[in-house]
Nucleic acid binder design. Structure first.
Length: 162
DNA sequence: GCCAACGTTGGC
DNA sequence: GCCAACGTTGGC
């Protein structure tokens, strides 16, 4: 947006535990659109609140399961806005420090573009020298929402053509 | 279930 | 502001 440069698409990775919310769950939604709520980490929040733009794309990643893998591609269809699930004491991620007047946590809405032909497993990702610096693979990285750079994005899309 | 790698909290 | 204790994440 600055200095007349064309807006560039940003790329992201969204982690989810399939036992809680899987790509099948998202596929079965009539709208195939979902609030990415419940993120309670400041760095991940900042990415959603400050950096994601309409039309940005993201990998949908299954974590904490028998075969962690990228399984689909989503598009950002609504940029950061207050995560209202934080306001509700009945919600699992309720946080009394966040109020409608002073929201602490933010979310975006994502829309499922497509499933990958086959999941690209964590194991396969780790085997690619081209992805050695990928944030997902960095030691001890536990962010549930993180950026992916263009080179990584394109390389991984290429892996989908098997 | 284990454990490394964090992030958060709270006493000082 | 420091830092130890604690809780969580997530691969294995």
């Amino acid at each position: 947006m600055t200095r007349g440069k064309p807006a560039s698409v940003g790329y992201w990775l969204f982690k989810t535990e399939p036992s809680a919310f899987s790509i099948t769950d998202l596929k079965n939604r009539k709208s195939r659109t979902e609030h990415w709520d419940g993120v309670r980490n400041f760095q991940a929040r900042n990415f959603m609140r400050d950096d994601m733009r309409l039309g940005d794309l993201g990998f949908f990643y299954h974590s904490s399961c028998s075969d962690p893998a990228i399984v689909g591609i989503v598009e950002i269809v609504r940029t950061g806005y207050p995560d209202f699930t934080a306001f509700d004491s009945k919600e699992p991620h309720y946080d009394p420090k966040s109020t409608p007047q002073r929201p602490l946590w933010y979310m975006v809405d994502v829309h499922l573009k497509r499933e990958l032909r086959e999941p690209i497993t964590l194991r396969e990702l780790k085997a690619q020298p081209a992805l050695a610096d990928m944030r997902l693979l960095s030691r001890g990285n536990r962010l549930s929402v993180m950026p992916v750079n263009l080179q990584e994005w394109e390389y991984i899309l290429g892996m989908d053509h098997r």
